[in-house]
Design a binder for these strands. Structure first.
Lengths: 153, 153
DNA sequence: GCGTTATAATAGTCAGAGATAGTCAAATTG
DNA sequence: CAATTTGACTATCTCTGACTATTATAACGC
Protein backbone atom coordinates (compact mmCIF):
# COMPACT_ATOMS: atom_id res chain seq x y z
CA UNK A 1 0.00 0.00 0.00
CA UNK A 2 1.35 3.36 -0.98
CA UNK A 3 2.15 5.50 1.98
CA UNK A 4 0.48 8.86 2.19
CA UNK A 5 3.79 10.45 3.13
CA UNK A 6 5.29 9.16 -0.11
CA UNK A 7 2.45 10.61 -2.14
CA UNK A 8 2.85 13.98 -0.49
CA UNK A 9 6.60 13.83 -1.01
CA UNK A 10 6.10 13.12 -4.70
CA UNK A 11 3.60 15.91 -5.04
CA UNK A 12 5.90 18.42 -3.43
CA UNK A 13 8.86 17.30 -5.50
CA UNK A 14 7.01 17.63 -8.74
CA UNK A 15 5.83 21.07 -7.69
CA UNK A 16 9.42 22.02 -7.00
CA UNK A 17 10.43 20.78 -10.41
CA UNK A 18 7.66 22.69 -12.10
CA UNK A 19 8.60 25.80 -10.22
CA UNK A 20 12.29 25.62 -11.00
CA UNK A 21 13.52 24.66 -7.59
CA UNK A 22 11.55 26.73 -5.10
CA UNK A 23 7.97 26.67 -3.88
CA UNK A 24 5.84 28.25 -1.23
CA UNK A 25 2.94 26.24 0.12
CA UNK A 26 0.28 26.58 2.75
CA UNK A 27 0.29 23.78 5.24
CA UNK A 28 -3.46 23.58 5.76
CA UNK A 29 -4.26 23.76 2.09
CA UNK A 30 -1.89 20.93 1.26
CA UNK A 31 -3.20 18.86 4.17
CA UNK A 32 -6.77 19.22 3.05
CA UNK A 33 -5.82 18.29 -0.50
CA UNK A 34 -4.54 15.00 0.88
CA UNK A 35 -7.21 14.65 3.52
CA UNK A 36 -4.80 14.45 6.38
CA UNK A 37 -4.00 16.38 9.51
CA UNK A 38 -1.76 19.39 8.98
CA UNK A 39 1.00 17.98 11.13
CA UNK A 40 1.46 15.24 8.57
CA UNK A 41 2.92 17.87 6.31
CA UNK A 42 5.48 18.64 8.98
CA UNK A 43 6.27 14.97 9.20
CA UNK A 44 6.87 14.71 5.48
CA UNK A 45 9.01 17.79 5.43
CA UNK A 46 11.10 16.79 8.41
CA UNK A 47 11.74 13.31 7.08
CA UNK A 48 12.08 14.00 3.34
CA UNK A 49 13.14 17.56 2.80
CA UNK A 50 16.08 17.73 5.13
CA UNK A 51 19.29 19.60 4.64
CA UNK A 52 21.23 16.44 4.00
CA UNK A 53 18.85 15.67 1.19
CA UNK A 54 19.54 19.03 -0.34
CA UNK A 55 16.57 21.13 0.66
CA UNK A 56 16.24 24.35 2.56
CA UNK A 57 12.97 25.03 4.36
CA UNK A 58 11.65 28.26 5.80
CA UNK A 59 8.24 29.05 7.21
CA UNK A 60 6.14 31.68 8.82
CA UNK A 61 3.09 31.40 11.04
CA UNK A 62 0.11 33.69 11.37
CA UNK A 63 -2.10 35.23 8.72
CA UNK A 64 -0.65 34.68 5.30
CA UNK A 65 1.73 32.13 6.74
CA UNK A 66 3.58 29.75 4.46
CA UNK A 67 6.20 27.06 4.16
CA UNK A 68 8.84 27.58 1.52
CA UNK A 69 11.02 24.77 0.27
CA UNK A 70 14.06 25.31 -1.89
CA UNK A 71 16.19 22.70 -3.53
CA UNK A 72 19.86 23.39 -2.99
CA UNK A 73 22.83 22.58 -5.21
CA UNK A 74 20.87 21.09 -8.04
CA UNK A 75 20.45 24.49 -9.53
CA UNK A 76 24.02 25.49 -9.01
CA UNK A 77 25.11 22.22 -10.59
CA UNK A 78 22.90 22.99 -13.56
CA UNK A 79 24.29 26.50 -13.64
CA UNK A 80 27.81 25.20 -13.54
CA UNK A 81 27.07 22.80 -16.37
CA UNK A 82 25.46 25.54 -18.42
CA UNK A 83 28.48 27.68 -17.84
CA UNK A 84 30.78 24.93 -19.05
CA UNK A 85 28.60 24.30 -22.09
CA UNK A 86 28.83 27.89 -23.18
CA UNK A 87 32.55 27.89 -22.58
CA UNK A 88 33.06 24.92 -24.88
CA UNK A 89 33.68 26.17 -28.37
CA UNK A 90 32.90 24.41 -31.62
CA UNK A 91 35.80 22.03 -31.16
CA UNK A 92 37.28 20.14 -28.26
CA UNK A 93 40.16 17.70 -28.03
CA UNK A 94 39.86 14.37 -26.33
CA UNK A 95 42.26 15.54 -23.67
CA UNK A 96 40.42 18.74 -22.81
CA UNK A 97 37.21 16.78 -22.80
CA UNK A 98 38.60 14.40 -20.19
CA UNK A 99 39.70 17.28 -18.03
CA UNK A 100 36.15 18.60 -17.99
CA UNK A 101 34.70 15.19 -17.24
CA UNK A 102 37.11 14.64 -14.37
CA UNK A 103 36.12 18.00 -12.95
CA UNK A 104 32.47 17.02 -12.98
CA UNK A 105 33.32 13.93 -10.98
CA UNK A 106 35.34 16.02 -8.51
CA UNK A 107 32.44 18.39 -8.08
CA UNK A 108 30.08 15.49 -7.52
CA UNK A 109 28.03 16.45 -10.52
CA UNK A 110 28.33 13.05 -12.15
CA UNK A 111 29.14 9.58 -10.88
CA UNK A 112 32.13 7.52 -11.91
CA UNK A 113 30.00 5.35 -14.10
CA UNK A 114 28.51 8.37 -15.80
CA UNK A 115 32.01 9.71 -16.33
CA UNK A 116 33.03 6.47 -17.96
CA UNK A 117 30.06 6.65 -20.29
CA UNK A 118 30.95 10.21 -21.22
CA UNK A 119 34.59 9.38 -21.82
CA UNK A 120 33.58 6.39 -23.91
CA UNK A 121 31.24 8.49 -26.04
CA UNK A 122 33.81 11.21 -26.67
CA UNK A 123 36.92 9.12 -27.12
CA UNK A 124 38.86 9.05 -30.36
CA UNK A 125 38.19 5.36 -30.38
CA UNK A 126 34.45 5.95 -30.58
CA UNK A 127 34.94 8.57 -33.28
CA UNK A 128 37.21 6.50 -35.45
CA UNK A 129 34.70 6.65 -38.30
CA UNK A 130 34.85 10.43 -38.27
CA UNK A 131 37.66 11.98 -40.34
CA UNK A 132 40.40 13.30 -38.07
CA UNK A 133 39.90 16.92 -39.06
CA UNK A 134 36.21 16.76 -38.06
CA UNK A 135 36.53 14.77 -34.85
CA UNK A 136 36.89 17.67 -32.46
CA UNK A 137 33.75 19.26 -33.88
CA UNK A 138 31.71 16.10 -33.46
CA UNK A 139 33.14 15.55 -30.00
CA UNK A 140 32.14 19.03 -28.91
CA UNK A 141 28.58 18.46 -30.07
CA UNK A 142 28.33 15.11 -28.30
CA UNK A 143 29.74 16.48 -25.07
CA UNK A 144 27.45 19.50 -25.11
CA UNK A 145 24.47 17.32 -25.81
CA UNK A 146 25.26 15.00 -22.92
CA UNK A 147 25.82 17.90 -20.57
CA UNK A 148 22.57 19.49 -21.60
CA UNK A 149 20.75 16.26 -20.86
CA UNK A 150 22.09 16.41 -17.31
CA UNK A 151 20.58 19.83 -16.68
CA UNK A 152 17.13 18.55 -17.49
CA UNK A 153 17.39 16.55 -14.25
CA UNK B 1 6.88 -34.04 3.12
CA UNK B 2 7.99 -30.76 1.65
CA UNK B 3 9.12 -28.35 4.23
CA UNK B 4 7.19 -25.14 4.55
CA UNK B 5 10.32 -23.09 3.96
CA UNK B 6 10.79 -24.83 0.64
CA UNK B 7 7.24 -24.06 -0.38
CA UNK B 8 7.67 -20.42 0.51
CA UNK B 9 10.97 -20.31 -1.34
CA UNK B 10 9.36 -21.75 -4.45
CA UNK B 11 6.47 -19.35 -4.21
CA UNK B 12 8.74 -16.34 -3.94
CA UNK B 13 10.93 -17.51 -6.79
CA UNK B 14 8.03 -18.00 -9.12
CA UNK B 15 6.74 -14.58 -8.19
CA UNK B 16 10.14 -13.13 -9.03
CA UNK B 17 10.07 -14.88 -12.37
CA UNK B 18 6.61 -13.64 -13.15
CA UNK B 19 7.61 -10.13 -12.22
CA UNK B 20 10.77 -10.03 -14.30
CA UNK B 21 13.27 -10.20 -11.50
CA UNK B 22 11.95 -7.94 -8.78
CA UNK B 23 9.09 -8.18 -6.30
CA UNK B 24 7.78 -6.36 -3.31
CA UNK B 25 5.93 -8.34 -0.67
CA UNK B 26 4.39 -7.78 2.71
CA UNK B 27 5.74 -10.05 5.37
CA UNK B 28 2.49 -10.50 7.27
CA UNK B 29 0.44 -11.11 4.16
CA UNK B 30 2.78 -13.78 2.91
CA UNK B 31 2.92 -15.38 6.34
CA UNK B 32 -0.82 -15.59 6.58
CA UNK B 33 -1.03 -17.05 3.08
CA UNK B 34 1.15 -19.90 4.35
CA UNK B 35 -0.35 -19.96 7.81
CA UNK B 36 2.92 -19.42 9.55
CA UNK B 37 4.42 -16.87 11.86
CA UNK B 38 5.84 -13.80 10.15
CA UNK B 39 9.36 -14.50 11.28
CA UNK B 40 9.34 -17.64 9.17
CA UNK B 41 9.49 -15.35 6.16
CA UNK B 42 12.67 -13.85 7.56
CA UNK B 43 14.06 -17.32 7.94
CA UNK B 44 13.34 -18.21 4.35
CA UNK B 45 14.81 -14.97 3.09
CA UNK B 46 17.94 -15.18 5.17
CA UNK B 47 18.64 -18.76 4.18
CA UNK B 48 17.52 -18.74 0.53
CA UNK B 49 17.72 -15.24 -0.83
CA UNK B 50 21.20 -14.27 0.18
CA UNK B 51 23.66 -12.18 -1.73
CA UNK B 52 25.80 -15.15 -2.61
CA UNK B 53 22.77 -16.76 -4.16
CA UNK B 54 22.27 -13.71 -6.30
CA UNK B 55 19.54 -11.78 -4.59
CA UNK B 56 19.33 -8.32 -3.19
CA UNK B 57 16.86 -7.68 -0.39
CA UNK B 58 15.61 -4.38 0.96
CA UNK B 59 12.86 -3.71 3.46
CA UNK B 60 11.06 -1.04 5.33
CA UNK B 61 9.12 -1.17 8.57
CA UNK B 62 6.13 0.83 9.68
CA UNK B 63 2.85 1.50 7.95
CA UNK B 64 3.00 0.45 4.33
CA UNK B 65 6.17 -1.48 5.05
CA UNK B 66 7.47 -4.07 2.60
CA UNK B 67 10.23 -6.46 1.71
CA UNK B 68 11.63 -6.16 -1.79
CA UNK B 69 13.67 -8.92 -3.36
CA UNK B 70 15.63 -8.45 -6.56
CA UNK B 71 17.51 -11.03 -8.52
CA UNK B 72 20.94 -9.65 -9.26
CA UNK B 73 22.29 -9.53 -12.74
CA UNK B 74 25.85 -9.97 -11.51
CA UNK B 75 27.85 -11.31 -14.40
CA UNK B 76 24.87 -11.81 -16.57
CA UNK B 77 24.62 -8.04 -16.96
CA UNK B 78 28.06 -7.89 -18.50
CA UNK B 79 27.25 -11.00 -20.53
CA UNK B 80 24.04 -9.44 -21.72
CA UNK B 81 25.81 -6.25 -22.70
CA UNK B 82 28.50 -8.17 -24.57
CA UNK B 83 25.80 -10.06 -26.36
CA UNK B 84 24.10 -6.84 -27.39
CA UNK B 85 27.38 -5.35 -28.54
CA UNK B 86 28.07 -8.22 -30.87
CA UNK B 87 24.53 -8.09 -32.16
CA UNK B 88 24.87 -4.44 -33.12
CA UNK B 89 26.13 -4.24 -36.65
CA UNK B 90 28.24 -1.49 -38.18
CA UNK B 91 25.27 0.84 -38.35
CA UNK B 92 22.38 1.68 -36.08
CA UNK B 93 19.55 4.17 -36.44
CA UNK B 94 18.66 6.61 -33.71
CA UNK B 95 15.38 4.82 -33.17
CA UNK B 96 16.85 1.34 -32.78
CA UNK B 97 19.45 2.79 -30.50
CA UNK B 98 16.78 4.21 -28.23
CA UNK B 99 15.01 0.87 -28.11
CA UNK B 100 18.20 -0.75 -26.84
CA UNK B 101 18.75 1.97 -24.26
CA UNK B 102 15.21 1.69 -22.97
CA UNK B 103 15.66 -2.05 -22.60
CA UNK B 104 18.78 -1.53 -20.52
CA UNK B 105 16.79 0.66 -18.17
CA UNK B 106 14.04 -1.93 -17.93
CA UNK B 107 16.56 -4.62 -17.10
CA UNK B 108 18.16 -2.41 -14.45
CA UNK B 109 21.45 -2.40 -16.28
CA UNK B 110 21.65 1.37 -16.40
CA UNK B 111 20.00 4.18 -14.47
CA UNK B 112 17.69 6.77 -15.94
CA UNK B 113 20.41 9.38 -15.86
CA UNK B 114 22.81 7.07 -17.62
CA UNK B 115 20.14 6.40 -20.21
CA UNK B 116 19.75 10.11 -20.78
CA UNK B 117 23.47 10.49 -21.31
CA UNK B 118 23.47 7.63 -23.79
CA UNK B 119 20.52 9.01 -25.70
CA UNK B 120 22.12 12.44 -25.78
CA UNK B 121 25.38 11.05 -27.13
CA UNK B 122 23.74 9.01 -29.87
CA UNK B 123 21.05 11.43 -30.99
CA UNK B 124 20.98 12.88 -34.48
CA UNK B 125 21.22 16.24 -32.82
CA UNK B 126 24.62 15.36 -31.38
CA UNK B 127 25.76 13.98 -34.71
CA UNK B 128 24.67 16.93 -36.78
CA UNK B 129 28.26 17.56 -37.88
CA UNK B 130 28.48 14.06 -39.29
CA UNK B 131 27.26 13.65 -42.87
CA UNK B 132 23.90 11.88 -42.92
CA UNK B 133 25.20 8.84 -44.77
CA UNK B 134 27.84 8.25 -42.09
CA UNK B 135 25.78 8.98 -39.00
CA UNK B 136 24.57 5.45 -38.33
CA UNK B 137 28.15 4.17 -38.47
CA UNK B 138 29.40 6.73 -36.01
CA UNK B 139 26.40 6.14 -33.77
CA UNK B 140 27.06 2.41 -33.70
CA UNK B 141 30.66 3.01 -32.66
CA UNK B 142 29.68 5.43 -29.91
CA UNK B 143 27.01 3.13 -28.54
CA UNK B 144 29.32 0.10 -28.56
CA UNK B 145 32.02 2.09 -26.86
CA UNK B 146 29.71 3.26 -24.12
CA UNK B 147 28.38 -0.23 -23.59
CA UNK B 148 31.85 -1.66 -23.39
CA UNK B 149 32.76 0.87 -20.74
CA UNK B 150 29.89 -0.42 -18.65
CA UNK B 151 31.24 -3.96 -18.65
CA UNK B 152 34.54 -2.82 -17.20
CA UNK B 153 33.06 -1.81 -13.86
C1' DG C 1 -4.39 59.23 14.61
C1' DC C 2 -1.78 56.22 17.77
C1' DG C 3 -0.61 52.79 20.74
C1' DT C 4 -2.74 48.66 22.97
C1' DT C 5 -5.36 44.75 23.13
C1' DA C 6 -8.37 41.01 21.28
C1' DT C 7 -9.20 37.79 17.49
C1' DA C 8 -8.34 35.07 13.68
C1' DA C 9 -5.26 32.61 10.91
C1' DT C 10 -1.50 30.30 10.42
C1' DA C 11 2.47 26.93 11.47
C1' DG C 12 5.21 23.88 15.15
C1' DT C 13 5.84 20.26 18.64
C1' DC C 14 5.41 16.12 20.80
C1' DA C 15 3.71 12.07 22.57
C1' DG C 16 0.94 8.17 21.69
C1' DA C 17 -1.42 4.83 18.72
C1' DG C 18 -1.08 1.88 14.76
C1' DA C 19 1.32 -0.80 11.31
C1' DT C 20 4.95 -3.10 9.82
C1' DA C 21 9.44 -5.71 9.83
C1' DG C 22 13.71 -7.77 12.63
C1' DT C 23 16.00 -10.64 16.17
C1' DC C 24 17.00 -14.39 18.86
C1' DA C 25 16.62 -18.29 21.45
C1' DA C 26 13.74 -22.17 22.74
C1' DA C 27 11.05 -25.95 20.94
C1' DT C 28 10.27 -29.17 17.38
C1' DT C 29 11.20 -32.18 13.57
C1' DG C 30 13.35 -35.50 10.62
C1' DC D 1 22.68 -33.08 15.02
C1' DA D 2 21.17 -29.78 11.62
C1' DA D 3 17.45 -27.54 9.81
C1' DT D 4 13.09 -25.71 10.66
C1' DT D 5 9.33 -23.60 13.20
C1' DT D 6 7.50 -20.65 16.71
C1' DG D 7 6.64 -16.68 19.50
C1' DA D 8 7.95 -13.14 22.68
C1' DC D 9 10.22 -9.06 22.50
C1' DT D 10 12.28 -5.13 19.89
C1' DA D 11 12.93 -1.57 16.30
C1' DT D 12 11.25 1.53 12.95
C1' DC D 13 8.14 4.19 10.30
C1' DT D 14 3.69 6.48 9.74
C1' DC D 15 -0.36 8.86 11.18
C1' DT D 16 -3.18 11.58 14.40
C1' DG D 17 -4.64 15.04 17.51
C1' DA D 18 -4.23 17.98 21.43
C1' DC D 19 -1.72 21.71 22.79
C1' DT D 20 1.53 25.63 21.83
C1' DA D 21 3.71 29.58 19.28
C1' DT D 22 3.67 33.24 16.05
C1' DT D 23 1.86 36.78 13.01
C1' DA D 24 -1.51 39.88 10.80
C1' DT D 25 -5.44 42.45 11.35
C1' DA D 26 -9.38 44.31 13.45
C1' DA D 27 -11.31 46.60 17.50
C1' DC D 28 -10.78 49.65 21.22
C1' DG D 29 -9.61 53.53 24.28
C1' DC D 30 -7.59 57.88 24.48
Amino acid sequence: MARLSDLIEEFIKSMINDMDGAIEIQRNELASRFNCVPSQINYVISTRFTNEKGYYVESRRGGGGYISIRRLNTNSAADYIMHIITSIGDKISQHTCEVFINNFVDYNIISNREAMLMRAATSDKALMEVPMDRRDDVRAMILKNMLTSLTVI
